[in-house]
């Protein structure tokens, strides 16, 4: 697949390395005008290409690996319909308190700003140290929840995530992304597919009985 990653920080470089190792074609964009991105990519992610977002072509998936407050403000000059995975966590230490995400998923806030893209909440639940672990995908495949309003986008994200050595679990529409975010039951722990599914089950039931959950996608 051709993967484009915005943000060459801790998470972006770790995901890029896993994606290159999985045989994907990876382009990565740092902060526009940041001269150091080329060196970061050369040393941290041999095999990936540093390229500004405006020069990306024929992407299968984009990943937006920047702090959430920045994700809210940057332009997204991607082909309409591009599948974008949002791994951001709204964490006050970095983002400050933002009213945009009161009681909703970061991905819903991003989707409201860029409705022409197909948004997927995922890759946010584990720390970059966990994702760096070389035994992932060999000894164990940690579960990774996926929330999206588009079945097609959820599928594309699942294929990518499985290739990274993780076990994709599609949990529902974008609004269920909060279950995967800080404060949600699936955030921050390495779980198996079965454990994640059971953990989310009661929460899903509760949401469903309140009638806030639309059609499940998977």
């Amino acid at each position: 697949m051709k993967i484009g990653i915005i943000g060459a920080g801790k998470l972006g470089t770790t995901l890029a390395r896993r994606a290159v190792n999985a045989g994907h074609d990876v382009v990565i964009a740092g902060r526009p005008g940041a001269a150091q991105t080329a060196l970061v990519v050369e040393v941290m992610i041999p095999g990936a290409t540093a390229l500004p977002v405006t020069d990306w072509e024929d992407l299968d998936v984009a990943i937006l690996a920047v702090p959430f407050s920045i994700a809210l403000t940057i332009p997204m000059p991607l082909q309409p319909g591009t599948v974008v995975i949002d791994p951001t966590n709204h964490w006050a230490p970095v983002d400050g308190d933002l009213s945009d995400v009161a009681h909703r998923s970061t991905s819903e806030a991003l989707a409201a700003r860029h409705p022409q893209l197909q948004w997927v909440k995922s890759l946010n639940q584990l720390g970059y140290h966990d994702l760096e672990d070389e035994t992932i995908g060999i000894a164990e495949r940690p579960a990774m929840g996926i929330a999206s309003d588009s079945a097609e986008a959820a599928h594309t994200a699942s294929v990518l995530i499985a290739s990274l050595g993780l076990d994709p679990v599609v949990i529902g529409p974008l609004s269920t992304g909060t279950l995967l975010e800080p404060g949600g039951p699936a955030f921050g722990t390495t779980l198996s597919n079965a454990e994640l599914s059971t953990l989310l089950h009661p929460a899903e039931q509760a949401e469903r009985s309140r009638g806030d959950v639309a059609e499940h996608v998977g």
Binding site: G30, Q36, V40
Partner: peptide, 12 residues
């Protein structure tokens, strides 16, 4: 703390 750009800055 782990952000590559911070390591680049320290070096520069």
């Amino acid at each position: 703390g782990g952000t590559p750009q911070s390591a680049v800055r320290a070096g520069m």
